[in-house]
Design a protein around this nucleic acid. Sequence first.
DNA 1: TACGCTATTATCGCACACGATATAAATGAT
DNA 2: ATCATTTATATCGTGTGCGATAATAGCGTA
Lengths: 154, 154
Amino acid sequence: MANDLTPPTTADPMAPMLCFDLYAASQAFTRVYKPLLAPLGLTYPQYLVMLNLWPDSPLSVGEIGRRVSLESNTLTPLIKRLQEAGLVTRTRDPEDERRVVVALTDQGQALEAQAAHVPGCILEATGMPQAEIEALQRTLRGLTRTMLDAAASK
Amino acid sequence: MANDLTPPTTADPMAPMLCFDLYAASQAFTRVYKPLLAPLGLTYPQYLVMLNLWPDSPLSVGEIGRRVSLESNTLTPLIKRLQEAGLVTRTRDPEDERRVVVALTDQGQALEAQAAHVPGCILEATGMPQAEIEALQRTLRGLTRTMLDAAASK
DNA sequence: TACGCTATTATCGCACACGATATAAATGAT
DNA sequence: ATCATTTATATCGTGTGCGATAATAGCGTA
C-alpha cells in the first residue's frame, strides 16, 4: 500500500473542480468507446468525422471542422490517416481550389453498418434514461455557451 | 460564406452525442483557464498538479497520479517541465528507492499566491450558482462511475 | 488590371493522453 | 537466501489539440 508522504488535506484540492469532473467523465466515455471502435480501426475523433460523412458525404475540411469543433491543424493529419486506411478520398474542389473535399470510399461507406451498434452500446453504458441524458446535454450546452462568451468578452 | 457541398441532414449527427457535449464543455473550460494560467507559465494539467502540491507538498509521482488521474507516462515529462521551470524538485525517496518525491521549491510555493484569484474567475465564468454546480458535479461523478464500471465489466 | 484583403488548408512546434514495454527496487514464497 | 512477483517510475510510439505561421486561391476596390 501507498505509505503516502503527505496525507491529503481535509479539503480535497480536486473537490471543487467542476472542470476536472468534466474531464473525468469525458475520459470515461473514451474508455467505453475504445474497445467498440478499435475493431473498426477508428479512434474516437476519427469516429466523429465518419459520423458526419456517413449521412452527408462529401464534405469540405472546413465544414467537418465546424461540425466537430476542430481546425485544419488537427483535421488535416487525422483525415490523411483516414485516407491511408482507405476510408475516404481527399480532392481539391474544382469550383474553389482552396477547398479540399473529403468523400467516403466504398469501404468507408461500408463501415457504417459495422458501426451501427456503437450508439446503443454507449447509451446502455451510461445507465441513464433518455430524458436525463437530454437534460444533462442541455445543461452542458448552456454552460459551454456561457464559458465561451466569458472567454470572448475578455 | 460556406457554400456547403452537402447540407446537414435533418437529424444532426452530433445531436445525440452526450460525449461530444462533455468534450465541448471541457474545451470551453480550457479556453477560460488558458489566459489565467499563461501569465503563471502553467498549462491546465500542470495547474492541477500544483493545486495538489500547494497544500500537501511533498508528494510521490504515484500519489499525484492518483489525484489527477494520470500515470507516469504522462506525469514524468510534465513534472520534468515543472522542474525545468524551477517550481518543483524531483528526488528519489531514500526510504523506497523506487519512488520519486516531488516537492515545491520556494518559487513553486510562491506561485500559490499568484494563482489565488483563478478559482474565483472560473466560478464567475460558469455563471452558475454554487448549488447548481455541485448538482452537476454529482451527476457527472455518478455517470463517470457507471461508465467505468461498464468498461471494466466488459 | 493591380493590389490588398479574406478564406481555406497545410505545416510546425509543443504539450498532453495513453497503450505497451522496460528498468530497478521492494516483497514474498519456498 | 533465492527467485518469481509486484510496485514505482521511466521510455517509446501514435494520435490528438492548438497557437502561430505559411501558402495558395478567390474577392473587392481603386
